[in-house]
Design a protein around this nucleic acid. Structure first.
Lengths: 359, 359
DNA sequence: GCAGGATCAGGGAGCGCTCTCAGCAGTACG
DNA sequence: CGTACTGCTGAGAGCGCTCCCTGATCCTGC
């Protein structure tokens, strides 16, 4: 029979009564206190304190049409994705930023196609002020749905459909400099004196994989096609690709894998074939996924991206867009994609090469 | 200027008008349609469809005092915790279950002590119907705060303060059978003919670590104290503990580490000292943390817990308690801890030994 | 010392929904 | 054929809050 149950939660009315002011004045104080004289502010503050008043968010939302909540949509077709700390870190960054702005984080995990409709409905339902979306695959229907829902959105990772390809205004996104990071990795291998450098790509329906491949090509301008093998971001895929590479080109002396997981698979194959790393073959991964990169033997040289910062930035961009939109469009017209007009556009974060033992 | 912005979202009123019924009837249909004759139900359904009506959750919550939302609180003092897929999987399980019951998942990540107060305030604010809490440390103030907030809660992992130690009713929680899993691991080592079996504990301010240690002791009833070394669930801690164990007892032939991360550290030390695994020393971990357990060389024999199922169960328990509470206490009195009276109590899930190469 | 302007408090409407309660069918029975 | 009863439907009252707008208060300038 806790006191905080229904019957006893104080309302603004109660606070006003106790402070001897009107509901309106109490409301002003609770929402910042502008335009209320100091002594009254003080009295209301004390009443709030004494009563343990907490505003009823539902009542507030009903009239303001703001929710102080942001949806985070993680489309997750593969279990693999979730098995790495990527999203956890990103969530952390997002959470920090939202918390600092008194917004809540509503997590929407999708499981297969049917779920997309559910998410679309939820977003369209106007339950949140905006959405942060991780769109992983080129053919993902999610962006379309979200655009249809008319919710201000920031994407994590460059959406597959590029900029302006569709009728929609170009999307706002936060991404790592995948291409630049890849370039740096390959250049590092070259600087080590390696000349026959191979690349194990990620799943090429994801922009990150495509961008890393592009980065590889930037440096290895006319690479032998046999030096490129398509992987899928999994360790098994890395093994497969490594075998294929070695079969096609046994004398390769450097490998850049599009993520650490594949690098670890590649490492096993290299060892299995009696090749020493980094002596015979230098190996570089991507992500700096700690439990993997640090635990391999030899430890993995890799390209680090600041994942938590990406999350934080996504949230910041969204919130900024939200308030900018509100200021521009006016309180009555907020909520549409136009809410992001005038807001800063996409951000690409730099990567850093982390040198360990494998290259 | 998307159509879904403020002005145009249809209200129940609009649906009712279009269907030629009253708001009340429309509401009944939207909420299940009991007690409304079929032709009217049909008409309302069509109107909803045509108008693309989505109920305004804020307005609904305002009167029902339900939110169809559950908070998930993850206290996370250490980065380590987040670096493993544990929470991700648990979240997935939770999400699935909540989705099936049309509830939303509000994620609350805490960062340091100050954040606890924030979480307490939020929970007490009555923004959610219940909470799922991961309380990791014995001295965590969170459970106290949550009890104070009077929100129905299910814990992930046995809370440190045991059952009934505090004045609170014994908490509802979902946990793995840490003790039983540990026993099975140690028995497996014994069955392999190992007699000098050591244990690397986890951070002993966490119940999972304590329980695993207890399981070890259950089998190794009078183990030499030198065969137990305290770790901290990190690879580095595993290395340290392994060194300590080997120094104190160079002829040990089996090691049970309280998690896979520490096992991987131990593995490195064993190799470094020229000991073969599993020939000289058999090694078992805990968690079956795939990116680690499968990638080590040799791959790790370990104790698997069904993490996703844990999450699902937590959510199920909470939701069941919520509806049970509502039925018992009546719609006016829900929301207090009593909401869980009569609900099923804690659940401990079985673990399974996964045999790989290390033991 | 008083009008005029600025500033600030309060009354009241209404956000969209649920739910109680009264009322009106339709049916069965006297 | 009238009455009682069951079963649906609709009118209306708020849930707690914000915000517009009116009215009161205070200060400034002449």
């Amino acid at each position: 029979m806790s006191e905080s149950s229904t019957a006893s939660r104080p309302t603004l009315e109660a606070v006003a009564a106790r402070a001897g002011v009107s509901r309106a004045t109490a409301s002003r104080v609770v929402n910042g206190g502008d335009g209320v004289r100091e002594p009254l502010v003080e009295r209301v503050r004390r009443a709030v304190e004494e009563l343990g008043y907490v505003p009823n968010q539902a009542a507030r939302s009903l009239v303001t049409r703001r929710h102080d909540a942001v949806a985070v949509v993680i489309a997750e077709p593969e279990t693999r994705v979730f098995a790495d700390p990527f999203f956890a870190l990103q969530l952390r960054g997002i959470s920090k930023e939202l918390t600092a702005h008194d917004s809540q984080l509503v997590l929407l995990l999708t499981e297969g196609r049917d779920d997309h409709a559910r998410v679309g409905r939820y977003l369209a339902g106007g339950h949140v002020d905006g959405a942060l979306v991780f769109s992983l695959h080129l053919d993902d229907p999610l962006p379309e749905l979200i655009h249809g829902a008319g919710v201000p959105t920031v994407f994590g990772g460059r959406p597959g459909w590029g900029d302006g390809t569709r009728s929609a205004a170009s999307p706002v996104y936060v991404d790592s400099d995948n291409r630049g990071g890849a370039r740096e990795a390959v250049r590092h291998l070259a600087a080590l004196g390696r000349t026959r450098i191979a690349h194990i790509t990620g799943a090429l329906d994801q922009t990150s994989a495509v961008d890393r491949l592009d980065g590889f090509r930037d440096v290895m301008v006319d690479a032998d096609p046999r030096l490129i093998a398509e992987g899928d971001f999994t360790p098994a895929g890395g093994e497969r690709a490594m075998r294929q590479l070695l079969d096609g080109c046994p004398d390769l002396d450097g490998v850049f894998a599009a993520n650490d997981l594949m690098a670890s698979g590649a490492l096993r194959v290299l060892r299995e074939r009696g090749l020493r790393v980094p002596d015979d073959v230098a190996l570089i991964g991507f992500d700096d996924m700690l439990p993997v990169a640090e635990q391999t033997d030899p430890s993995l040289t890799t390209v680090r991206q600041d994942i938590e910062e990406m999350g934080r930035l996504m949230a910041r961009l969204l919130l900024r867009g939200l308030s900018a939109g509100a200021a521009t469009v006016g309180s009555a017209g907020a909520g549409s994609q136009e809410g992001l007009v005038g807001a800063p556009s996409s951000v690409v974060l730099p990567t850093t090469l982390v040198r360990r033992a494998s290259a």
